[in-house]
Design a protein around this nucleic acid. Structure first.
Lengths: 195, 195
DNA sequence: TTTTGTTGATTGATCAGTCAATCAAAAATA
DNA sequence: TATTTTTGATTGACTGATCAATCAACAAAA
């Protein structure tokens, strides 16, 4: 399918280029077709780019679904979500460039923003669903929001190479956040029971 | 000074536009001068943009220094750093647009990346310095890294309007992260002493 | 024959950067 | 002080390059 080839090419060019400021010619050349054909299939550059964002998030979603299926316990599923977020392919230069470019683009394109909101909600909700099995609802909501933010923040710091820690350490930090908050909650619960 | 006026204009145009894809003409018009003058002062568009990033981070730094001076205790200084990060002006549309655009630009411009790395290090080190007064060094490093990432992540989620919580709740979440980890550490310390 | 895929050539617009010319104010000179 | 000279600020007009988008024509499949 030509559409798929063009979207793949777009992703590669965005990665090389490090931004969404890419030309239809570059994308078409990368895909081995004429620029006119890219217009034929997508109507405009913006539509091609939006399709690229969608595909990008779809791929992450598929990885997450697979990882969630493989894990059996709620705690295991939490780890699976974290692991996927820091998976090696998320740090491929073109993936990093795409993410950051999409964040910026969301300020201008409502459609791009909607996709990223969906990603953010999905991350939060995957965490929340499994946390609810381990602690009360209100606590689960707090922890899910904090963990999701921490994941995004650690990802950006890794992407900028501004974090003095490894990817494994980033995973450990997120796991530790969840473990610690859950541990403290169960102590409080035990304390309540004692009274 | 014309340079300053042009940098201010650039910031405003970037905000309106929602990205770094702005023209010298727009910036010059916003500043009320001719496009040729902008070139006269900055040599190139890239230099003007880099100067704009620098000014942007300088402003945040000044705010932080002031807030740190006002706080007296280490714990108070931690709260001050958090408060500044979520200060109202950080969520002005042009500030949000600038931050996200700069993150994306860092993939292409080594100089922009360097500035953002400096910001990330500064945030971490402000947290670390005060945490060291409250817990052992290794723990302080872990907590500082986690808190810095959480701040960045929460900021992005607020910027995209993908967080279902208020700015105040974001601040509370970060405070809670620090409080909880410190609390657990002091309990462990007490437990060690008992043995 | 009709439909679908594909291209080369072209257009119209946008933009960064240049340059020669103008103007004002400061500095040097008489 | 009065004058000339120099310097820096400022602009309008222009250029060369780039690019999204269009379209008519051609090829291949149905």
């Amino acid at each position: 399918m030509r559409r798929k080839a063009l979207v793949d090419a777009a992703m590669r060019v965005i990665g090389d280029h490090g931004s969404l400021t890419v030309t239809m010619s570059e994308i078409a050349k990368q895909a081995g077709v004429s620029p006119a054909l890219a217009h034929h299939y997508f109507g405009s550059k913006e539509q091609l780019l939006i399709e690229t964002v969608r595909t990008h998030l779809q791929r992450l979603r598929d990885n997450t679904v697979t990882a969630l299926r493989a894990a059996k316990t709620p705690r295991g599923k939490l780890s699976a979500v974290i692991r996927v977020s820091f998976q090696a392919d998320q740090f491929a230069p073109e993936t990093i460039a795409a993410w950051l470019a999409f964040y910026a683009e969301a300020q201008r394109s409502e459609e791009t923003r909607r996709f990223l909101v969906i990603y953010a909600r999905r991350l939060r909700s995957n965490l929340l669903a499994n946390l609810k099995a381990l602690c009360p609802r209100e606590d689960a909501e707090r922890i899910a929001e904090g963990a999701a933010a921490m994941i995004d923040g650690l990802y950006i710091r890794q992407s900028l190479r501004s974090a003095p820690i490894s990817i494994e350490a980033s995973i450990a930090l997120t796991e530790d956040y969840i473990n610690t908050l859950l541990a403290l909650l169960s102590r409080k619960a035990a304390f309540q029971k004692d009274i």
